[in-house]
Amino acid sequence: MAEAIHIEGLVKSFGRTRALDGLDLTVRTGEVHGFLGPNGAGKSTTIRILLGLLRSDGGSARLLGGDPWRDPTELHRRLAYVPGDVTLWPNLTGGEVIDLLGRLRGGLNQKRKKALLERFDLDPRKKGRTYSKGNRQKVALIAALASEVELLLLDEPTAGLDPLMEAVFNECITEELHDGRTVLLSSHILSEVETLCDRVTIIRKGRAVESGTLDELRHLTRTSISAELAAPPNGLSALDGVHALMVDGNRVHFEVDTSELDAALKQLTSAGVRSLTSRPPTLEELFLRHYQDELNGEEAAR
């Protein structure tokens, strides 16, 4: 099977708010797929529909070749889930919760569990109510990572982890990939997605606004350019696709839509280029651009 998750035109409303508004998402088997979006964009709602916890109002969602609403229990044997907001039973220890969730899923690799407990530096003998937020997160992560499953659904899994533990998490996910597992990683921590993910889907207001490999996405977007010219530039500001232009004598700095890169460079060479640095956009900038649209939209609405 080439696709672990295939979502088309997914719609979900809660009362009057439309949480998902025609979402498309495809996750190929064996990839780590980044699922990016601001709070409230619909990431958790999507994952909960994939788990069969919520019923979609329209569109289709397929998971591991099955229908998540119709046969959840069979599908759940093949996946593990880490919620964004982990709450534990106050009177069960972390070790008990890890074992229980693993067994309810159909099995747990005790050797891996032991190794993970060590790597994440978690004391499994503490009662649920005494764990900090980060430690609760570790319990859920270990329960998921120690299971022998095909697919991991991780909803902001590093929330509350310290940088050291984030690094451990990144190592673990890289290993998962080597084991041939598929991972859907929802996040708003861009560096994490950038290092881990093969492909990324950016979601905003319940719709996918960008989807593809990081390279593809960068092509669709802007390149940032700094140059020192022989003469002051002219005509740059008149070009379509040039943004955030700053001119300081003979020095210019701007961002340009990748499709307009050629025209912009011609303008620069006509003035004579002394030095030039160009940089592909970071995911940060990609992401901010979509946020920016939203902010502008909101301001316009005011």
Binding site: T93, G95, E96, I98, D99, P124, R125, K126, R129, T130
Partner: peptide, 17 residues
């Protein structure tokens, strides 16, 4: 609060448990 067991008892494997 005291420390508890590091592993679940063998019986803790169903929603009823």
């Amino acid at each position: 609060t005291r420390l508890g067991p590091a592993n679940a008892a063998p019986g803790l494997r169903s929603p009823f448990a």
